[in-house]
């Protein structure tokens, strides 16, 4: 792979954007929010974030954004990820390794079924810290 220039990056983005606009005009309705507090970082949240970018691209899920947030208060279950999308309840998943990220993309986002064993709830405010 040769070193890419900013100009090449811009052109690639332009051409893929045009392609996307033809296919989808439904807006960015899938939000993948990765917990990147200190404990998230320490348990590999960078791998999780990268895995979602790669997987969503791989499955051609173009109406998605990937964002970071701080600790969700579930430090024992890091890395944590919240998925918000139409047709599914807002869901927080814990212990999301790249392998679990694949299950979430295939089962939750594409199949609209919760992924067993990884569903967590936000702790109440008074025990968050």
């Amino acid at each position: 792979m040769a070193k890419m220039t900013l100009e090449e990056l811009r052109k690639l983005r332009e051409s893929s954007k045009q392609e996307l606009e033809r296919r989808d005009n439904s807006g960015k309705d899938i939000h993948v929010i990765v917990g990147m507090g200190t404990s998230g970082i320490a348990s590999g949240a960078k791998y999780t974030l990268e895995a979602f970018v790669t997987l969503l691209q791989e499955f051609n899920i173009t109406n998605a954004i990937v964002r970071q947030t701080g600790s969700m208060g579930l430090d024992h279950a890091e890395p944590t990820v919240e998925i918000r999308m139409p047709g599914m309840p807002d869901t927080i998943y814990g212990r999301v390794t790249p392998e679990v990220a694949r299950e979430i993309v295939m089962q939750h986002i594409l199949g609209k079924r919760l992924v067993d064993g990884h569903v967590y709830d936000r702790p109440s405010k008074d025990i968050m810290g």
Binding site: L9, K17, E50, V53, L56, Q57, V66
Partner: peptide
């Protein structure tokens, strides 16, 4: 260059870059 720092397509290209 990418128009977004959160859109999946933009992030995938950014990583390649």
């Amino acid at each position: 260059a990418l128009g977004s720092m959160e859109d999946v397509g933009a992030l995938a290209l950014m990583e390649e870059y």
